[in-house]
Write a protein that binds this DNA or RNA. Structure first.
Lengths: 254, 254
DNA sequence: CGATGACTTGACTGCTGTCAACGTGCGTGG
DNA sequence: CCACGCACGTTGACAGCAGTCAAGTCATCG
């Protein structure tokens, strides 16, 4: 029963897009699911009002009940150490699932927070499990998604373990670029939804280092940066800097 | 048709231990599976001759056909960069699954190599998938295992991104200690199956740094080290050094 | 218009990598 | 059984990348 009040704030369209009509269904959980089965998946999915910037989707220690898919906007997931410091583990764009790490112990080990106004599809896990018991293609896709996530995390470990600050930032930008392209956005011009501090935190660098590198990359003609707005000028060379394959096999690489 | 020749080299017992009789079935894939179902899982598992030290279980780019569980011994998994350098992504002890990152793209993104004589259970993925379509408890356990793997990788990202050399090595030793304890081995005295170079590579440190830290930890009375043999003297303090929770919730943490 | 948070830039320091030499144990072959 | 070679490990000297501290600029919002 959507109220008139909600309609004023949020377009009804945003709330009611079904998986079948969602532009993300080629990169989200429904990949490889037949239309009639997609309806059944769609039926268990819960679409709530969007999160405002800074709002939490879930917090560390929350009981695990659902997986979540980003429909629009972006999230960061992070852990906190004893002294309250946050460590960002990932940024999540539309079509990406969050909460996969909570299945094992029925508790969210990370918190998820909106970086901007963000719409979410909630997938209650009990229903999802029952459904995937009936739909082998869904089960298969779930394993693929989780496997891809493991693969991405491994790539990140490599970046954090071995790369210089310059390589890390270049790899980060190329990864974002690839992910935006996959979603139909420009791969050379986009807005960062996270702060310099967030980027540095995620990459294991001081925010000052990130800032200096942006300046240097700009001076070297690799990109143009103004506040949160990025334009990749020499994607090829940036790519080379990152010591990574840039049109690689893992499309959702972070 | 096992030949007499094989029997000379490998004890038959090592080869034929079924899941039901395996001491690892409380930490491996069969967790939470009923006995009659475990038999069905057991039936699809292939137990081969052990790998010798240095032998590959699979290589980068190999077509994905099976998951593997370590039965005894240990493995390392690694990627190689364009210039042929290897980057170690994990060490794998008995009861741990490898190859989970290959499901997504049907190709192994990492290679797996035995660090010592190592026995393996091979789990053909097609058979496994069919079976788990019939056994919800198996499917559930598989999701848990993969979720745990994602969680562990996140922990590693944290270690690599934020910790000092000292903290990384301490965390590594504590993690090994926990994993050995879980498997019924001593948590204070064990042999490293990997070289200093391997440890450094894995932790994103120079092997010289690892060596220096071992010496320093020993001088500070935290542990005793002689070649590959480690004895943790002051586990508590080492734990504190690692800036991590040491009896934490993720038992298979790397 | 002032306050606040985000970002930039500079100076300095220190951790950790690199290069190099040396020690040690193990396995192979004589 | 011994000697040699080799891989592994230790230790020292030095340098450089990136962190920390600090000051200053800029944009946004109340």
């Amino acid at each position: 029963m959507p109220t008139r009040k909600q309609e004023k704030v949020v377009s009804l369209k945003d709330i009611t897009v079904a998986c079948q009509a969602c532009s993300l269904n080629e990169i989200c959980l429904p990949v490889g699911i037949e239309n009639k089965d997609m309806e059944r998946l769609d039926a268990i999915i819960d679409r709530k009002r969007p999160l405002a910037r800074g709002e939490h989707l879930f917090r560390i220690g929350d009981r695990f009940r659902s997986l979540y898919a980003v429909r629009s906007g972006s999230l960061k997931t992070y852990a906190t150490s004893e002294d309250g410091q946050e460590q960002i583990m990932g940024f999540h764009l539309p079509g990406e699932l969050v909460g996969l790490d909570a299945i094992a112990n029925d508790v969210h080990p990370l918190a998820a927070k909106a970086l901007e106004t963000t719409s979410i599809c909630e997938i209650p896990f009990d229903s999802f499990e029952s459904l995937s018991n009936q739909l082998p293609s869904l089960q298969r896709q779930m394993l693929r998604v989780m496997s891809q996530e493991i693969h991405n995390d491994e790539q990140n470990m490599l970046t954090l373990g071995q790369r210089s600050a310059e390589e890390r930032l270049a790899a980060f930008l190329i990864s974002l670029s690839n992910r935006y392209r996959r979603r139909g956005f420009s791969s050379t011009q986009f807005n960062l939804t996270m702060s310099r501090g967030d980027i540095g935190n995620y990459l294991g660098l001081a925010l000052e280092t990130v800032s200096r590198l942006f300046t240097r990359f700009q001076n070297e003609g690799l990109l143009k940066v103004e506040r949160r707005n990025i334009e990749l000028i020499d994607r090829q060379r940036l790519c080379h800097f990152s010591s990574a394959n840039c049109y690689g096999d893992n499309p959702d690489n972070t």
